[in-house]
Design a protein around this nucleic acid. Structure first.
Lengths: 340, 340
DNA sequence: AACCATTGCGTTACCCGTAACGTAGTCTTA
DNA sequence: TAAGACTACGTTACGGGTAACGCAATGGTT
C-alpha cells in the first residue's frame, strides 16, 4: 500500500527490531533464523517486537551480504498470446516456485533486439540464471551472457551446440514428418501458412523441414507468411485466404500452429471447400481448442508444460551444483486426424 | 552460462576494475555513470578494463546503497491458460518494461493460500510494488501488504474500497446486463456454465449478477460449475453436457467466457441442437477465437490489454510520486451476436 | 577452589556500490 | 603573487543483513 495510507510509513529494519527488543542486531538475526545461541526469554522479546512492528526480512540484503545469488530467474518469451508459450511459462514458473525461485518475465515480441535490451537490464539486477526462447540471440547478447557467468537454458528449439544448456524438440524434423505424411497421402501441391517476424525461429524450422520433405517427395510448396502478426485464429483465416488467392489448387495446408489451422479451417469451410476432400488442413502443437473442435485435426502433439518444467529443472540442478545433461529432447508426436 | 564453461568464472566487481585501471572505486564509478569529474585519459583506462574484464554493473548494490527501491514489480495472476489473463499480463509487462521495471510473476492457481505464500516470499525480496488479481486475499496477506508499505494495485474486479488502488470492471453488472438481455429476448429458463475454485472471484460475480437479473425478470436459473478446472474449451463442452442432462429445456446458456462458450456451442451443435433457435449461447470477454468463429457469438467485450496497462500505469505513477485516482473502471460492452 | 566447556550474547568486518566530503594541484585574476 | 575557483581525483561512511570471532557469566568436574 502507498505510504500515506499504511500504518508504518517506512520499512522496519532488523536494527530497529533489535533496538526495541533491547538486544543486538546479531541476536535478533539469530532468533529470526532460529539458528540457536539465544535464550527463550530473548526469543520472546524479539518475536514480540517483530510482531508489533510488522518486520519483514529483507532477503536482498541477506543475499547481498552472503554473496548468494538472488532468487530471480529471468525468462524470455516471445509472446503470451501464443498458448504454447503460455503453457511453457506455466511449467517453468510452477517448477521454479516450488524451489523458492521467482520468475522474472521478459517479452521479446519475437525481436532479438528486444531480447538483447531485456538481457542487459536483467543481468544488471543479478538473476541467478536465465531461460531464453530459441537459439537465435544477438551477438552482444551472447557476449553479455558469457560475461555474466550464470547458467542459461535455451528452450523450444533444439540446439546441439547451445550457449550452455538446451531443452526442446527438433522443429525441422517435425515439419519434415508432416510433409512426408501429406506426400504419402498422394498430395503434390502443398501450402504453408504461418507468421514472419523477420527472424529465424522454430516455426521457420518447421516450415523449412516441411518444404524439404515436399521437395524430396517431388511436390510443390506454396507459402504465405503473415508479417509481424501473432500465430492465432484470425491470421490463420486471412493467411489462408491470401494463400488460396495466390495459389489456387493447393491440396493441403500445413499451418504454423493449431489456432491458425482452425482459422484456416473456418475460412475453407465458409467458402464451400470440403475438408479433407477438397483441401487438407494440418495444424501443429495440440493446443486446447482441439479438444472441442468438430473434426479431429491432424496435428503434432507437443508437451509444452513438460518442456517448461524440464527447462526449469535443468537450471535448478545446475544452480544446486548437480551435473546436468546439457541437451534434452522432449520430442513430438505426429497425430493423424480427419482433416488430412 | 555455467561457471565451468565461461571465460570469467566469477563476477567482476567495480573494485577489481578500479584496481586494474589504477584508480579508486569512486573514479571508476564516476566514469561508468559518465557523471563527470575525470580526465579523458582516466576514462580510457577505466573503459578499457571494463571491456577487457567484461564488467557488468550490479544495480542491486546500487539500489541498495542509494536506498532506492528495486525495479521488481510482483504480478499475481491466477493462471495463464486463460487468455484474458495472458493479455492482461502482456499489457502490464509492456508498460512496466517501458519504464525500466521488471515483472516478477506469481501464478496463484486461483488459490488465495498460494497467493499468500507468494506474497510473503516476494515481499522479502523488496519489490517496488505489487499488482494482484481480484479483491479476495487472505487476512495474513493483507497484514503483510499493510506492513510492506509499497503500492498495491488490485485489478480485474472493481473494488470501491481497495487495499490501495484498483483497476477493473464491474463483473456483477456485466452479468446482470447479459441476464436482462436474455430475459428481454423472451427466455425464462436460463443456464450458466463456469468453473469453481471454491473462492469468490470475478467470474462468480458475473454469475451472481446474471442470476439476479434472471430472478428479477421472473426467470429460472440452472447452473453447472466445473470444479477446479480452467475456463477453456473442453470444460465448456462437458459442462454444457452436464448442465443439459441435469436441466433439460434450458433456453440459453451464459458461459464464464468465450472459450467455454465455444466448447458449449460445439457440444450443442454436435448433439443436434440448432443455435439460437433451440438454445442460445452467450460468452464473455471477446477472446481471439471469436475472430474466426462461424457464427457471431453474443458476448461481452473487455479491453484486457488496456486493463493491464492501466494497472501498471497506476503503479508507476504512484512510484514516481504523482497523485493517482485510486479506482478506475475500464468498463465493458455487451455485444449482441447471432447466437442468442 | 581452580579449571574448562558451554551458553548467550556483543563487536567487527564485509558484501558492492554511491553520497558526501576532503584535498592536492592547476589555472585565473586583481 | 597571493587569494580564490576549478579540476581530478581519493577517503569515509552507509545501507541491511551475516560470518567470524571475542568475551563474560554460568555450571560442572576434579
Amino acid at each position: 500500500m502507498s505510504k500515506e495510507k499504511s500504518s508504518n510509513n517506512k520499512k522496519i529494519s532488523l536494527a530497529e527490531v533489535a533496538r526495541a527488543a533491547g538486544v543486538s542486531k546479531m541476536t535478533a538475526s539469530r532468533v529470526l533464523r532460529d539458528q540457536g545461541g539465544f535464550s527463550e526469554s530473548t526469543r520472546q522479546k524479539v518475536m514480540a517486537e517483530v510482531e508489533r512492528l510488522g518486520y519483514l526480512p529483507n532477503r536482498m540484503a541477506t543475499a547481498f551480504a552472503a554473496g548468494e545469488s538472488s532468487p530471480f530467474i529471468g525468462v524470455s518469451i516471445p509472446d503470451l498470446r501464443n498458448e504454447a508459450f503460455a503453457q511453457i511459462l506455466e511449467g517453468i514458473d510452477h517448477k521454479l516456485g516450488t524451489f523458492g525461485h521467482q520468475t522474472v518475465l521478459g517479452l521479446s515480441r519475437h525481436l532479438p533486439e528486444e531480447e538483447e535490451k531485456w538481457i542487459e537490464k536483467i543481468l544488471s539486477w543479478q538473476p541467478a540464471g536465465l531461460i531464453l526462447t530459441g537459439r537465435v540471440h544477438s551477438p552482444r547478447a551472447i557476449t553479455m551472457l558469457k560475461n555474466a557467468a550464470i547458467p542459461v537454458v535455451e528452450m523450444w528449439d533444439l540446439n546441439s551446440s547451445p550457449l550452455d544448456m538446451c531443452v526442446g524438440l527438433n522443429h525441422f524434423d517435425s515439419g519434415y514428418q508432416m510433409g512426408r505424411f501429406l506426400i504419402e497421402k498422394g498430395h503434390r501441391k502443398l501450402g504453408y501458412v504461418g507468421t514472419d517476424h523477420g527472424v529465424a525461429n522454430a516455426a521457420q524450422s518447421r516450415w523449412k523441414g516441411f518444404a524439404k520433405a515436399v521437395q524430396d517427395g517431388g511436390g510443390e510448396v506454396c507459402d504465405h507468411h503473415c508479417l509481424n502478426d501473432v500465430p492465432d485464429f484470425y491470421p490463420g483465416y486471412y493467411g489462408t485466404e491470401q494463400l488460396l488467392n495466390a495459389h489456387p489448387g493447393v491440396q493441403a495446408i500445413f499451418f504454423q500452429n493449431d489456432n491458425m489451422a482452425v482459422g484456416g479451417y473456418e475460412f475453407c469451410e465458409g467458402h464451400g471447400l470440403r475438408i479433407p476432400d477438397d483441401i487438407g488442413i494440418v495444424g501443429w502443437g495440440a493446443l486446447p481448442v482441439l479438444s472441442v473442435f468438430r473434426k479431429k485435426l491432424t496435428t503434432v502433439k507437443v508437451r509444452h508444460v513438460r518442456l517448461g518444467q524440464l527447462a526449469a529443472e535443468k537450471l535448478l540442478s545446475t544452480l544446486h551444483g548437480s551435473a546436468v545433461q546439457p541437451v534434452s529432447d522432449v520430442g513430438y508426436l505426429t497425430v493423424p486426424g480427419a482433416t488430412a
